[in-house]
């Protein structure tokens, strides 16, 4: 066997692994989608049951939520740029795109955390009413996803420093990109169902 044929075989093997891992990650994303859809429908069913406490009109600001939407959409796009850089074999580009996604993500996470902490400080907690329970669960779960996405990017940045753009890292970048793109979709659904309908 010539080295060329060997290389070819190696390449084919990587393609197959890449396709399988990406598919497996897609199945995970779809299960996550079912989970968020369930939480959104629970919120929709319960959002009027405020038990005399504050409703979405009192605690949610649609103009702020709109700004956050733009941030999440920008983060998803910039994370996609890491996949573009990966396809171009540009290590610097991939690092830069992941870093900017991380910065946007951490600002979002911080704002979101402060928003929820502020509510709790005012005595508005998940124990207040059915509406508040579903609201905190939904927004909290989304923030947890953002947090995990941030941790993942951090790990990827370290691994990129250690092994460069190896085949494995390319697959991981594809998956992290899918994850952030999925988060932008989920946030848009939350924005529509929670903040926009709350402002009508």
């Amino acid at each position: 066997m010539t080295t060329d044929a060997l290389k070819h075989e190696h390449h084919d093997h990587h393609e197959e692994v890449h396709a399988k891992v990406t598919f497996g990650f897609w199945v995970y994303i779809m299960t996550d989608f079912i989970m968020f859809a369930t939480m959104l429908i629970v919120y929709t069913v319960l959002h009027n049951n405020t038990y005399g406490g504050p409703g979405i009109a009192q605690i949610g600001s649609v103009s702020h939520a709109f700004m956050w939407s733009l941030m999440v959409i920008a983060a998803a796009f910039i994370c996609s740029l890491s996949a573009v850089a990966k396809a171009k074999d540009s290590l610097l580009g991939a690092r830069l795109a992941l870093l900017v996604t991380f910065i946007l993500g951490i600002i979002f996470f911080e704002i979101q955390y402060r928003e929820l902490a502020n509510l709790v400080a005012q005595g508005i907690t998940w124990q207040g009413s059915a509406f508040l329970s579903s609201y905190f669960t939904l927004i909290g779960m989304f923030s947890v996803h953002i947090g995990v996405g941030l941790l993942w990017i951090l790990i990827l940045l370290i691994q990129l420093g250690m092994q460069g753009l190896s085949d494995r890292m390319k697959t991981r970048i594809t998956c992290v990109t899918l994850f952030w793109q999925f988060l932008s979709l989920v946030w848009i659904l939350i924005f529509t169902l929670v903040y926009l309908t709350g402002a009508i």
């Binding site: 103009s63 939407s69 959409i73 920008a74 796009f77 740029l81 996949a83 573009v84 932008s184």
Partner: peptide, 26 residues
């Protein structure tokens, strides 16, 4: 293939539609 065009259109369209939805409601 880098798919840059695809990602760029996705970004522009989603930003456009979210702004449209916000504009309609506000």
């Amino acid at each position: 293939k880098t798919h840059f065009g695809s990602y760029l259109s996705g970004f522009i369209l989603s930003a456009l539609f979210v702004t449209l939805a916000y504009g309609l409601v506000s």
